[in-house]
């Protein structure tokens, strides 16, 4: 085949893509460049900033791990079993993605507030949802769990069902088959789902703002500094937090990139 002429349409598409990339990169790059070393090091040593970053990382990680105990087995069921209203169930799983996050906060408030059954149970167990870490985790988990369920479901679906049958045939219990065959074979998808859920949880703002303004996660802190002191004071925190988020995003891409098939 001879080298074909450059197709004008391809050039137009590439140019449009370039604009889009610039749209993503320019604001971030501009923000990073606008923050001086001194301001950044001030932010790094600011206890309010660092403790909020730790809180954000920790709460989203805990939310992810706790949710995974339900999400991963559930994803296996969704990948393997046919049942009535399965499409509806799949739709419900995706629901948190389409609901405005402030609405999520309002909805959660209705279930977790003191006086509600869950809220009262929490109080008895010494867990405070409203204005507490448990509430932050609930809000983070609510908005981010679809990413884990969907990734794990795709991972399980890619495991040949025949391997699970072979394991059962060899006398293994269904739980053993799940732990020794299904999980290890789907682990890349599960890991990338966990990282994605974690990253999404970290970046949550709207739902957490309503459930728990304090203790302050970083997105709320950024909002508060911007509101109270203006752009200049909000920027260093933002840069630091985005840098932390980027580290995890890159880690995610590396894991996902090593996967031979399926997407994130």
């Amino acid at each position: 085949m001879s080298i074909s002429r450059i197709e004008p349409m391809h050039l137009v598409f590439a140019a449009l893509g370039g604009v889009l990339l610039l749209f993503i990169v320019a604001p971030l790059a501009g923000m990073f460049l606008s923050v001086g070393k001194a301001e950044l090091s001030e932010a790094v040593t600011d206890r309010e900033v660092t403790s909020s970053i730790w809180l954000t990382l920790g709460a989203s990680m805990a939310a992810t791990l706790i949710a995974s105990f339900g999400a991963v087995p559930f994803a296996w069921i969704l990948a393997r079993k046919e049942f009535p209203f399965k499409k509806l169930v799949n739709g419900i799983v995706d629901l948190p993605i389409v609901i405005p996050h402030s609405a999520v906060g309002i909805a959660l408030l209705g279930v977790l507030a003191p006086g509600t059954p869950v809220g009262s149970l929490g109080e008895k167990l010494g867990v405070t949802f409203i204005g507490g870490v448990a509430g932050i985790m609930a809000a983070m988990a609510f908005v981010s769990v679809p990413f884990l369920v969907n990734a794990a479901r795709d991972g399980f679906a890619a495991v040949p069902v025949r391997l699970e049958q072979a394991a059962l045939n060899l006398g293994a219990s269904p739980l053993r088959v799940f732990l020794t065959v299904s999980m290890p074979m789907a682990w890349r998808s599960i890991i990338s789902g966990l990282v994605l859920m974690w990253a999404r949880g970290m970046s949550e703002f709207g739902a957490v703002l309503i459930i728990a303004y304090h203790p302050m996660i970083t997105p709320v802190l950024i909002y508060e500094r911007f509101g109270a002191f203006g752009l200049k004071y909000a920027r260093p925190v933002t840069v630091l937090f985005v840098a932390v988020c980027l580290v995890f995003f890159i880690a995610l891409r590396m894991i996902a990139g090593r996967r031979s098939h399926a997407e994130v």
Binding site: A166, N169, G171, P174
Partner: peptide
């Protein structure tokens, strides 16, 4: 149950 059949399958 599948896991208790003792009918060894070779695929």
């Amino acid at each position: 149950r599948m896991q208790r059949r003792r009918l060894g399958m070779v695929f």
